[in-house]
Design a protein around this nucleic acid. Structure first.
Lengths: 168, 168
DNA sequence: TAAATCTTTCAATAACTATTGAAAGATTAG
DNA sequence: CTAATCTTTCAATAGTTATTGAAAGATTTA
């Protein structure tokens, strides 16, 4: 397989994967291209290589920077900005976990806490089922939140090493 | 907070959470309602409670059954079908992990393997960066795949217990 | 300061995804 | 067998999300 074809397939695979996870396809494709390119790329070049518009490129690059997955890079002598992705997948993963945790898990925990305050007629079958399920979910999410917190701080080889021991 | 209001908020929260994860909102809302309801519910009642059409209800219930999160239940003496959700969140989580692993991780692994076969001019900076990143991702995904395999088989209290030890 | 170059915005539009509901298909009861 | 009840399908439609590109805004250079 030729390099260009392989790149194209990777970009397309990464994009459709992202779609299934509620992530903008173009954003993922820009990320994919940056992941497999050693040097910083300009917005102009990203637009060209992925056949996307100026607006879309700008917006999605910004989003990637927001997520902490891509950095702006200044190249001496160049007027325009260049972009470079973090290549270490463990770091990428940690960063995504960190962001999703902050954006989703923590707000969810707050809602679940509020929902515990439902007027509890303990004899009511309906009310009991509700509070039971919410409590169950709350414990689960709380536990996951704590665990992911540690994961975010963890070193890769250490993490996998121990995880393998744990689950074997 | 009244039970009905709490239910409504849970259903709405679950639905918008799902949207962020590339999951159909209505499907998640049906799931949410079934999660907090102790007894099986008919399609008619789901339609009523969530204000959704016959077609949508039918399709999304089927999808939930496909995912292994909801069961069809026959109630003696009743003509129509009823539906019941698995309430144990650990089981729900395991089932989702199992399905997504099968649907997404495994196909991704296959693609990554193919991409390793890129024509490798080792002196070419571009080619080197590509194969390095792909290899990196492949190792990561392979490791995750194995780990999730074990998670799917794991018992909840055992899993959390050990995980806590691991990450402390 | 003015011109050139680059970045950002945003309203219009396109692309995609989900929902509806009527009709056809099944199944059960009598 | 026929009617009644329940389930599934699917083309039309609505709703949502993403993209475009021209124009405005910034920044740098000379």
């Amino acid at each position: 397989m030729k390099l260009e074809a392989a790149k194209a397939q990777f970009i397309q695979t990464w994009g459709s994967l992202a779609t299934q996870w509620g992530i903008n396809k173009t954003m993922a494709q820009i990320h994919a291209l940056l992941l497999v390119t050693p040097d910083p790329i300009s917005q102009e070049d990203l637009m060209e290589e992925l056949s996307i518009s100026r607006g879309s490129a700008n917006m999605n690059i910004r989003e990637l920077i927001d997520w902490g997955l891509v950095d702006r890079v200044i190249i001496p002598g160049e007027r325009k900005e260049f972009f470079l992705a973090e290549k270490d997948i463990w770091k990428v993963f940690r960063q995504i976990v960190k962001e999703r945790k902050k954006r989703e898990l923590e707000p969810l925990l707050k809602v679940l806490q509020q929902l515990q305050a439902v007027e509890g007629d303990k004899k009511n079958r309906e009310a009991k089922a509700f509070t039971d399920t919410i409590e169950n979910i709350q414990k689960f999410v709380g536990q996951a939140d704590k665990s992911l917190d540690s994961l975010v701080k963890a070193d890769e080889s250490w993490f996998w090493g121990n995880l393998i021991k744990l689950i074997k």
